[in-house]
Simulated assay, not measured.
Amino acid sequence: MNYHYLIITIVAEVIATSALKATDEFTRFIPSLIVVVGYAIAFYFFTLTLRTFPVGVAYALWAGLGIVLVALVTAIFYRQMPDWPAIAGISLIICGVVVIQLFSKTASH
């Protein structure tokens, strides 16, 4: 499987989502532009991802890894530290992504 498009999708979405707070409700131009362009790139590359990945698996990987990375980015840049229940939930998401990659026959389509 080709993971390059999925990686670009995830990175673009993480950048866009992380910039949402900086838009100040879309009143600041540059952060707003980053959000719009980031999501456009993410959706475009997600369509390319779907050439080789089943939709459900691709979306699960995108959403799961996106959640984990956005949590890390916002902890670093916005000092929004997750509490222990959030860390436990994020750990379960990581476990889910690992299970899909290691054990799902659908993931090897």
Rank of each mutant, 00 (worst) to 15 (best):
P31E: 11
T52W: 07
L50S: 01
G64M: 02
I30V: 15
F43P: 11
P31T: 05
A60E: 05
F53S: 06
A22H: 15
F26T: 09
F26W: 13
S32R: 02
S32I: 04
A40S: 06
Y44M: 04
F53N: 04
I67G: 02
V37A: 13
A40M: 11
F43A: 14
F46T: 09
D24A: 11
F29V: 03
S32C: 00
L33V: 00
A22W: 14
T23V: 03
A63Y: 10
G64H: 08
A58P: 01
R51C: 10
L61N: 10
V36P: 00
V57D: 05
F46E: 10
E25H: 05
A58I: 01
V36E: 02
V36A: 09
A63V: 07
A22P: 09
P54I: 02
Y39K: 12
G38A: 06
L61W: 01
T47E: 08
F26P: 08
W62G: 07
V57S: 05
V36D: 05
T49P: 10
K21R: 11
V68T: 06
W62H: 09
T23I: 09
V36F: 08
I30P: 13
G66P: 00
R51Y: 14
I41Y: 14
T52V: 10
Y44I: 02
P31F: 14
T49L: 05
F45A: 04
G64F: 02
L61H: 14
A42T: 02
L61I: 13
L65E: 00
R51T: 12
A40T: 03
T49N: 01
T47P: 10
G66R: 07
L65F: 02
L48T: 02
V36L: 11
T47M: 10
A40N: 01
F45G: 01
T23R: 06
F53W: 14
Y44G: 06
T27A: 00
V57I: 12
D24V: 00
L48M: 06
Y59H: 04
F53E: 06
G38F: 01
A42C: 04
L61K: 13
E25K: 09
L61A: 11
Y44N: 04
F26Q: 06
I34D: 05
R28Q: 13
V57G: 05
Y44W: 04
L65D: 07
L33K: 03
G64V: 03
Y59G: 07
A58Y: 00
T49G: 06
S32Y: 03
T49H: 08
S32D: 01
V35K: 06
K21D: 03
K21T: 08
L61C: 11
I67M: 11
R51L: 14
L48D: 07
Y44P: 02
A63W: 05
F26N: 13
Y39V: 08
E25S: 04
V68N: 06
V57P: 06
V37Y: 07
W62E: 05
Y39L: 09
L48K: 15
F46V: 15
T27N: 08
L33Q: 00
A22V: 10
V37C: 10
G38W: 00
F26I: 09
F26S: 12
A40Y: 10
S32Q: 01
V37W: 13
R28N: 13
T27V: 00
G56C: 11
I67K: 01
I41M: 06
L61G: 08
G56Q: 05
T47S: 12
I30S: 13
G64K: 02
I30G: 15
L33G: 04
A58C: 00
T49E: 03
